[in-house]
């Protein structure tokens, strides 16, 4: 019920809010889609990916290039998801036998290879000079402007959310959780490890590619640096800030990551020592937030919220120790 009210509020926002904020909210929705994609793969399946920006980029370029060729808008969205999903399968297959650290490194290289390809294959992608994204036309109407983008992104977010909820209540989603927590017993429960992992990669990459089709509309001009490692780290920041292992977390994290730069822009003139005008403040702050979240609240904002809710529910009887968690100090992840 809360969610219905929330959705209604979201639906009427563009009527009241200024164009700029509507556009920014649209971008929040797009990032939330990628956040969910990253959450499914990293938060639920336990597979680290440092190349989701590359999947987003593949989707964005695919959709933009096809649009420029005159392909209908809806088809370009599907194509974006499919191309990114195939790329996800491609990187998923060889990384099946890797775990933890090595997977992180492999996806890192894959992401940077994609970024280089986007930059160097300039006959198709426009390289560093950028690729201007055409405005989609559906049934004779040009769907330009932030309001259209807002509703389209919201629809995409709802679609992806619906799909993720289905995944999580189906065998495939439970297989993902099982793989995260114990591969060996997942296997003896009849879960096909490699197939489930590749499926998770493909679904996650496909979702990121889908987001890419809308992200292309948001940025209007595509350049390779919009899809490099730093952006991938933003997506990881999303899931850490929001809280690993919850869809709520992915959305909260996306709101945070998109709105932090806006907050900086608003405060730019009010910060002391001209701090607000320092270049490089934004990535530095992202780093700081990531570090603080990991150090202070590994459960993220959603985890903290649940603690607060528990505290209120048990009000006068709550103690600090109710939410302390056991840590194992000599656990070795060399043994997988």
């Amino acid at each position: 019920m809360r969610y219905v009210v929330f959705l209604l509020v979201l639906l009427v926002i563009p009527v009241f809010a200024g164009e700029f904020y509507v556009g920014e909210l649209g971008a929040v929705f797009i990032f939330a889609v990628v956040g969910i994609a990253q959450m499914l793969l990293t938060g639920y399946t336990g597979l680290i990916s440092l190349c989701h920006a590359a999947f987003l980029g593949l989707g964005a370029y695919t959709a933009a290039i096809l649009l420029a060729m005159g392909v209908p808008f809806l088809l370009t969205i599907v194509a974006a998801a499919v191309v990114a999903g195939l790329a996800g399968t491609l990187i998923g297959l060889p990384t099946l036998r890797m775990s933890g650290l090595y997977l992180a490194i492999a996806t890192l290289s894959f992401g940077s290879i994609i970024a280089t390809v986007l930059a160097k294959w300039d006959r198709v992608t426009g390289g560093w000079s950028g690729f201007i994204v055409p405005t989609p036309v559906v049934l004779g109407h040009a769907l330009g402007g932030p309001v259209w983008l807002y509703y389209m992104s919201l629809a995409a977010l709802l679609f992806v959310l619906w799909m993720s909820l289905n995944i999580l209540r189906s065998p495939i989603g439970r297989a993902m959780i099982a793989i995260r927590d114990s591969e060996i017993s997942a296997q003896s429960m009849g879960i096909h490890l490699s197939r489930s992992k590749v499926t998770a990669f493909a679904i996650s990459a496909g979702m990121a590619g889908l987001a890419g089709a809308f992200y292309a509309q948001y940025v209007r001009a595509l350049t390779p640096d919009a899809f490099d490692l730093l952006i991938s780290i933003q997506f990881i920041t999303i899931i850490f800030v929001g809280g690993l292992g919850s869809l709520h977390g992915a959305i909260i994290g996306a709101v945070f990551v998109r709105l932090l730069p806006q907050a900086i822009a608003l405060l730019r003139d009010d910060l002391p020592f001209g701090l607000g005008r320092m270049p490089g403040l934004e990535p530095g702050l992202f780093g700081l937030v990531l570090v603080l979240v990991i150090l202070v609240e590994p459960g993220g904002v959603y985890g903290r919220w649940q603690k607060i809710a528990r505290y209120l529910a048990a009000f006068p009887l709550s103690r600090r120790s109710t939410s302390t968690r056991q840590r194992s100090f000599t656990r070795s992840e060399r043994l997988r």
């Binding site: 189906s170 439970r174 959780i177 927590d181 114990s182 017993s185 997942a186 009849g190």
Partner: peptide, 22 residues
Amino acid sequence: ELFTEATLLQNLLIGCHCRSGT
């Protein structure tokens, strides 16, 4: 070797995995 970050019910449902065919 249980799935420690999942609920008991989820653990049991994962046990049903090998009987799913959709």
